[in-house]
């Protein structure tokens, strides 16, 4: 029985980890194109989920229409955010942009419940409630769906980024704004594209996490929760986000399964951060991040 318990922990840890990766990739998107860390990514997920759940609950929209509404909302919302708040900050110190995103995050956390109400709402995706049992594996359907969506998004986004012309141009912008400009690349357009993509992936994250744990301001805490994922994987690596997510998910599951019974619970909330600090001490740029060699 002992090994089955272990297999179950690892499987579920991996599924949860892939769902973390879906939130974490939002950070990577923004960091790769603008060099800034967007601390509001968790709030984006929350807003997306609130809009979808609210459309179902308050207006009686069918699930798919509600998801469509959420998508449209996030694209317009992030487009507007970039134009109004972030565009004027291009060229300012990165710290200023980071502080602005922290401000935005706290604002959204306060405004969300004010507009849509503070109660916890469900997102009833049309999937079964019964766990999937497959040999020794014992999985929640929403976790499986979340993991599948996560892998699917990474594959499509990875292709876009590595192979498509717009993706290559986006990498060029991330590499050097100045040189990209000399190449005739409209840098601002790619910033908007990055923020809109971050809005899109926030909708996916909000959907799977909202279905898994319910929709309220707690969802915003995801942003901080996935921080070890981003740092472990390296801020600029898509593969890193997947691996980082899986590591964090598994570490959480194992500490919940093996350490919590002895200390009375709660270790899974901080073990990922312990791991993050340990990794940072050895590789300050994450497991998959680019080491930046600076001449002093």
């Amino acid at each position: 029985m002992e090994w089955q318990f272990f297999v179950e922990l690892v499987t579920n840890g991996m599924l949860t980890g892939l769902m973390y990766a879906l939130v974490a990739v939002g950070f990577v998107l923004i960091y790769k194109s603008t060099d800034a860390i967007n601390f509001a990514q968790g709030e984006f997920c929350m807003i997306a989920a609130i809009v979808v759940a609210g459309a179902i609950k308050l207006y009686g929209f069918p699930v798919w229409v509600a998801i469509g509404t959420g998508l449209l909302f996030m694209l317009v919302f992030n487009w507007g955010l970039e134009r109004v708040v972030l565009r004027p900050m291009i060229g300012r110190p990165v710290v200023a942009i980071i502080m602005a995103t922290i401000g935005l995050a706290l604002m959204f956390r306060g405004l969300g419940p004010l507009v849509f109400g503070a109660e916890t709402r469900p997102i009833p995706l049309p999937i079964p409630d019964q766990p999937i049992i497959w040999g020794p594996f014992f999985m929640a359907p929403i976790d499986v769906l979340g993991a599948v969506i996560s892998i699917g998004f990474m594959a499509v986004f990875g292709w876009f980024f590595m192979k498509s012309r717009k993706g290559v141009a986006m990498r060029a912008v991330a590499d050097s704004h100045q040189v990209s400009m000399a190449m005739g690349i409209n840098v601002e357009r790619y910033f908007v594209l990055a923020w809109m993509l971050a809005g899109f992936v926030a909708l996916l994250g909000g959907l799977v996490w909202g279905s898994a744990i319910g929709v309220d301001t707690q969802l915003a805490a995801l942003g901080l929760k996935v921080f070890p994922v981003v740092i472990l994987g390296g801020l600029d690596s898509i593969v890193g986000v997947i691996v980082g997510g899986i590591i964090v998910g598994v570490v959480e599951a194992i500490s919940a399964g093996y350490i919590d019974p002895f200390v009375g619970g709660g270790t899974k909330d901080f073990t990922p951060y312990v791991l993050m600090i340990l990794v940072l001490m050895v590789r300050p740029y994450g497991i998959f991040g680019k080491p930046i060699i600076e001449r002093i």
Binding site: V168, A169, R171, A172, D175, V179, M183, I185, K290
Partner: peptide
């Protein structure tokens, strides 16, 4: 763009 190939750099040009 150092991470990109010769071809990718030129296509960006």
């Amino acid at each position: 763009f150092r991470g990109m190939t010769v071809l990718e750099n030129m296509m960006l040009g």
